[in-house]
Every structure is written in structure tokens, then in C-alpha cells.
Design a protein around this nucleic acid. Structure first.
Lengths: 161, 161
DNA sequence: GTATACCCTATCGACTCGCTAGGGTTTATT
DNA sequence: AATAAACCCTAGCGAGTCGATAGGGTATAC
């Protein structure tokens, strides 16, 4: 499966909304600026997410977007499927299963593709927006600890520039 | 990562050549007919495989193609990379590793993509053409056993048509 | 009633994909 | 030699996708 820029943007926007989940409504403009996404392009993506009931919106002067469910209940796999289609590297799971049964000459090949899709699905469906936000926080925290403890023997980031 | 028809055709052709490995040279025509691949289209694919030193060819009247190495030494992952590019769902492994380091706001996301690509690579790089051929033989054998033992209580294929 | 936001449609240029066409070059056979 | 069969190479085509932009329409707060 291939993740397009549109798919990446969608995930970035959702992560942004997840981090602002307590804050409530967030404007397109804010997301676009923070994530460096073309504003009008992002608009279209948010409409898709809205129609799929992943986010909700309010119009008018104080409008904006918010997640429709808590970040822990939004699976990355579902978002990827919504924007970029099936997780399988070829066709979709149903087609692969059928071809394993009906094309004995290449059953092994399609079974292999199915293995790849199942591995990807296992990872992406067991990861939520909350997981990603927490993973980011850990990275940030680790980086902060590193910066606060500059030992001569240790290899440093080139942050002195 | 997405596998195109071109990629599927390449793998089908290589499986065909693997099954005929002892036999020696195989003509494009034979592969195209057996695998239902447009002949001229397959030609172009075989040239790619030849330039990548996966197969070799002989020209002239009794010409054809053959695998350049035994089937056990040709990894599916390498073929997919050759025809359809990196195994990562976004960018390639090097880019993802770099963005994990340099974009702390989305380190978790790119790390996740890297997990998916590593899972796919683990599967595809540990499977050879020989593995696929054997897997096919097993499927065929299982099917033959099933057909020879038609028990009333068992659910049958609809092969009586 | 005006500014600010979300909503919708159309379109663009670049690119890829699956495929076809039309030759050129090499070799075995007659 | 002449011929036929096979591999080799380049060009192009129609359809589709992709990332992005344009230009409005509609709802809401002040």
C-alpha cells in the first residue's frame, strides 16, 4: 500500500487535532500554517474526514474542526484506508484471498502478498492517534534530557550552530 | 508500497522461469501464453530484469530467457524494489529515518511508517522464488489429496461442474 | 451587514500505468 | 545466402491519478 501526500497531510492534521483535543475547535488556517499544508488542499482533506465521521466542524466566525472521538479511538489504519485505499500491496484482502483459492499456479505469491497486508494491518490497526502523540512526547522528552546533560564523552547533536 | 501489474507480471514470469530452471532457455512467447501477459509488455519487463542481472538471455532462433542464479538465491523483495521501488509506504527507509530524527513533531508517525516498511521487508526479503514454487506445490498437492478423498460430510469444492 | 470561517466544484499541469507499434539485430536452420 | 524465429530498443497513446489552485457559495459571530 502506498501513502500519498494527501494521506500524510490527513494524519498530520489529525495529530494536530489530537494534541488540541481539550482545546476544542481548531481552524483550518492554524493547522495549515503549523503543518505547512496548502490551505485549500487541506480543506478538501478535512471534508473527506468529516464525511467519514472522523472529525466534526462548526461553521461561521468562530468555527473550526475537532475530533469526533477521543484520540485513543481513532486508528491509523482506518485513516489510511479512507484516504489511500486498501492496505494490501496488490488489490485488497478479499481479492487476494480469492486468488489464493482460485489460482493454484500462483497461490504462494498471493498468499505472500496477504502476509504483507496482514503485517501492515496489524501495525496500523493497533496504533491510535493517542499512541502517536505519546510517542512524539517521548521523543521530545528524550531530546530535552539529552540537551540538558552535555557530557564531553557523548556524541552531541550539532545544536551549537 | 504498491505492487503494479508490471511488478506482478515480473514475479509471475520469474516463477515460471524458476519452475523451468532445469529445462534451460524459455521463450517470451511461452511465458506470455502461460501467464496471460501481453507479449510485448512482457518483453519490456524482461529487459529490466536482464539489465538488473536477474535473468540472462540468448538471441536468435533458439533463444530465450533463464534465471541467472538458482531460484533459492532470488529474493522477492529485490524484485519488487527493482520494479516498483522502495518497500516503505511513504518515501524510502533512508528518508523515513532522517525525518524521525529531524521532525520531532511527527517522529512517531514516521517511526510507524518505518515499522511497516521493516515488517514488509522482513517478509519479502526472507522469501525466495524457490519458497514460492514450493508453496505452490504444497497447495497443488493438498488439493489433489482433497479431490481423491471425497467424504460426504466434508465441504467440497464445486469441481463437479 | 460585514468579516470570518467552513463548503463545494471545476480545472490545471505533470506524471504514471498498462499497453501497442514498428522497427533493428542476432542466430539456427534450410 | 536466404529465411524465419527470437531477442532488443524507442516512441507514443489513452486513461487515470496526484498535488495544487481558483472561485465562488453558505453559515455564524460580532
Amino acid at each position: 500500500m502506498r501513502i500519498s501526500h494527501r494521506g500524510l497531510y490527513a494524519l498530520q492534521a489529525l495529530i494536530h487535532l489530537a494534541e488540541a483535543y481539550e482545546r476544542g475547535l481548531v481552524k483550518i488556517r492554524e493547522i495549515a500554517d503549523a503543518e505547512s499544508i496548502p490551505e485549500k488542499f487541506l480543506e478538501g482533506i478535512l471534508v473527506i474526514l468529516k464525511n467519514a465521521r472522523v472529525v466534526s466542524s462548526e461553521r461561521g466566525r468562530e468555527g473550526g474542526y475537532r475530533l469526533r472521538r477521543p484520540p485513543a479511538e481513532i486508528r491509523i489504519g482506518d485513516v489510511v484506508r479512507l484516504i489511500d485505499g486498501p492496505l494490501a500491496p496488490f488489490g485488497d484482502a478479499a481479492e487476494l484471498e480469492q486468488r489464493v483459492r482460485t489460482e493454484p499456479r500462483h497461490a504462494g505469491l498471493f498468499a505472500l502478498f496477504l502476509d504483507v497486508r496482514n503485517a501492515a494491518a496489524a501495525i496500523l490497526d493497533h496504533t491510535s492517534l493517542l499512541d502517536l502523540v505519546e510517542r512524539n512526547r517521548q521523543v521530545l522528552a528524550a531530546r530535552a534530557r539529552k540537551a540538558a546533560r552535555p557530557q564531553p564523552g557523548e556524541r552531541r547533536e550539532r545544536a551549537r550552530a
